[in-house]
Amino acid sequence: MEQAVFNLSQIEVFQPASLKEALKILNDNRDAEIIANATDLWPRIMNGEVKPKKLVDISGLRSELSYVKREKGVIRIGALTTISELSEHQFVSEKRYRAFNDAIKLFGSPQIRNRATVGGNICAASSSEDLIPVFLAYDAKVKLASVDGERIVSLDKFVVGKRELSKRHNEMMTEVFFEEPDDGYSSVFYKIGRRNTLIINLVNLAVVGKVQDKRVVDIRIAANRVKGKIPERARKTEEFLKGRTLDEETIADAQRVFGEELSLSDDFRASAEYRKQVLKVLLKRGLNVLGV
């Protein structure tokens, strides 16, 4: 008989009533894990992949951490904002934010969107999180709070590995924010999987950019995998495209540069070669959307 090495019912659960209280608990308990609305973490606890001794349940902090604010040219999204709530905000319907709209429509299922949070998706920190490439393509930053105060970290310095965040044990991500691109920008997000609902992506790609008179003024490209297994910007491809005239030849060259920049690995979902091929096709589609 297998020895029960870990008893789930022994988990100590903290349910703070305020952010301040939550940060105090985190500070006093090095071994505590933050749990938001649990759509990612709970199944991983139930199957034994994650074995927390203590949980700090922040789902009750919605009055402080669920919001979408648009002020002074910055969009600020509270960590506990659900995907459904994000979808209801007016900004996602604008052309320059189409990537958000595309990602939201393909996010989990309606039930998952009602629970999953923006902060949770970012902090889950894996290549299957669709919002990370989208936020990366908008040059987003995250706000980390602790008993010592707040600090700002750019998203690409925050998500540093598969299930790996660069933060101190007593810090909590409370907000993601980015400067609004002007309304001459366009954006698009693609996700390829095996069905249309509850897809775990094989690849995804977010493209945000500004093309004027066929010339690429600015472009940001992010995918769930560029090198290895974490979401990242494709900076070499971006540099290649900046300032060039967006014609068929440039697009073909950009696909080649992108293919060389990608350093992917095989896994049980798809081969590296397949992923590379699909990403190159998606880049072409994205550039065509921007060029229109």
């Binding site: 659960v13 349910q15 749990i35 609305n37 649990a38 759509t39 709970w42 199944p43 139930m46 199957n47 349940d57 789902s59 459904s84 299922s109 309606p110 039930q111 998952i112 009602n114 629970r115 509850l198």
Partner: peptide, 25 residues
Amino acid sequence: TGDCGICTVLMDGKPVLSCIIPAFQ
């Protein structure tokens, strides 16, 4: 595991999956 939707209930008026919601939440 939150994939099939058979456990759907309404929480504060919205469909959610009761198999991946810890009871304490």
